[in-house]
Design a protein around this nucleic acid. Structure first.
Length: 475
DNA sequence: GCATGATCATGC
DNA sequence: GCATGATCATGC
């Protein structure tokens, strides 16, 4: 037994929280310096060394447990303060250029045990045991600070997911568990779900684990609240500011969130764009380019283009137009990449790879009828299947190789052609220019300037990803 | 009619 | 002014 008295009641969440508020304004170095009882609990001899290792992600959390709460770390499935049911999470946030705040990372709750989780209903799950009451300790991440012990803690507060979020978190949990029950743990993706994700969790990307209903080995994954969800938590519960988001769902909807949305959009299947504009009181001189998504948001009762649930789930809306010969004319563009940045990345931590792994898409689909009028077909939530990510990896790697070897540029009819991977080389994606015009450039590693480029999803690939009922002509 | 380069237009 | 979603343009 430790021969000192804890300065808080470890059975009482409020007591733990008010003690934690003493952390506010301190750096991790301050916490260590002010710790007078560190001789009582010896964690290990090379403690300071191990906490300077940037790869040891749990380090700062361990430090707060040991040096501030004087509680021994446990790595079992119980909450950190078992008698209070409180889980401690030390997590970074960042200040954006415009002054707004974002979570810097997803919040990892607990590893997914593929064998046990299939027998655990949500209410009795390890996950919920750890997530029902979380003490969030937020520190400010700053790029220029080298030693992470110098990051400053600015908030410490208990958090429980509110009822409306819990309904979605529960659906997410069930979706992840169902996939494991189908023997598809190896096909799990963080973008399968909305607020709660199955994030990869391993020091080494080659590690694999067994799963109960398939011989395929799967990546180790952990239940985690997505970065987008944690950004919402930060801005609404920890540092409440102006809330500019409108929520779509009010009260009980009876079905899962995504069905609810696609059902509401689907109620207008077969309506022409002009009919929808009349119906929804959308007035314009000439059709705005975002009319397709505007209509969808108006149907959902959203006046702006920012739906709260979409922001929390990191859902990106894309409109798709099918020609009346059942093709899609345009490929789908994404943010440009910087030539000098992408060559420093590996696929596993690449900007575009992470974007596809973490983003869920909301497709609003229209089709031209024989009178050349655009008709609403419906909507679909989508994320890229893992096998298609492997194809993207090939294109990504070739792109990096081309840049490293020096892009070959040839000029013809006033246009500059290159040897980036084209749309016929790969079934999923290609590289093409994407800027204000041809003179909108980024520097290449060799010093030349070249038109900004981005990855595009092939138009025929997108068509193949659409649900059949969105492709077929409505009466 | 496909492939690929180029550009428009809105919102922040 | 820029980023980004959306779309146009043209040679083969």
């Amino acid at each position: 037994m430790p021969h000192f008295v804890l300065e808080y009641d470890a059975r009482n969440p409020q007591s733990i929280e008010s003690y934690a508020k003493r952390l506010i304004g301190k750096t991790f170095t301050d916490v260590c310096n002010e710790d007078t009882v560190n001789d009582v609990i010896v964690i290990n001899d090379d403690y300071e060394e191990s906490h300077k290792d940037k790869k040891r992600k749990g380090g700062l959390g361990d430090l707060i447990e040991e040096r501030f709460f004087h509680y021994k770390c446990n790595s079992d499935s119980r909450p950190d303060f078992p008698d209070a049911g409180v889980e401690l999470k030390v997590t970074p946030y960042k200040e954006n250029r415009d002054g707004s705040l974002s979570a810097k990372e997803r919040l990892v709750i607990t590893m997914i045990d593929y064998f046990n989780v299939v027998n655990e209903p949500f209410e009795e799950s390890h996950l919920w045991n750890k997530a029902r009451l979380i003490l969030l300790v937020y520190y400010l991440y700053q790029e220029h600070i080298q030693d992470r012990l110098d990051y400053k803690i600015n908030y410490a507060q208990l958090f429980t997911p509110p009822e409306a979020d819990l309904a979605i978190i529960k659906q997410d949990y069930d979706k992840i568990v169902s996939k494991i029950k189908e023997g598809k743990a190896h096909e799990l993706s963080e973008s399968d779900t909305l607020y709660l994700g199955a994030a990869t969790k391993s020091s080494d990307s080659t590690v694999r684990r067994e799963q109960p209903y398939s011989d395929e080995l799967a990546k180790p994954r952990a239940f985690s609240f997505k970065t987008s969800y944690m950004t919402y938590v930060l801005n609404n519960y920890i540092v409440p500011g102006k809330n500019t988001y409108e929520s779509i769902v009010e009260g009980d909807i009876g079905v899962d969130f995504e069905s609810y949305i696609t059902n509401r959009i689907g109620a207008y299947k077969g309506y022409t764009v002009s009919a929808l504009c009349k119906l929804l009181n959308i007035v314009y001189d000439k059709p705005p380019k975002n009319l397709g998504s505007l209509i969808a948001f108006r149907i959902l009762g959203i006046k702006s283009n920012n739906a709260e649930e979409f922001a929390k789930a990191n859902i990106i809306t894309k409109t798709i137009r099918i020609e009346n010969n059942n093709t899609i004319k345009e490929s789908m563009s994404f943010p440009t990449f910087k030539f000098n940045d992408i060559v420093l990345e590996t696929w596993e931590d690449s900007t575009f790879g992470n974007y596809l792994r973490e983003t869920r898409f909301f497709f609003v689909v229209y089709r031209f009828n024989d009178n050349h009028e655009l008709v609403l077909q419906g909507s679909q939530f989508w994320n890229m299947p893992t096998k298609d990510l492997d194809e993207v990896q090939k294109v990504w790697q070739k792109t990096v190789d081309v840049i490293k070897e020096g892009v070959q540029i040839t000029e013809k009819n006033g246009k500059r052609f290159n040897n980036f991977p084209g749309s016929s080389e790969n079934p999923v994606c290609h590289v093409r220019p994407h800027g204000r015009n041809a003179n909108d450039t980024y520097p290449l590693p060799d010093g030349r300037e070249y038109t900004k480029q981005c990855f595009w999803l092939n138009n025929d690939y997108i068509y193949n990803q659409l649900d059949d009922e969105l492709k077929s002509e409505s009466q």
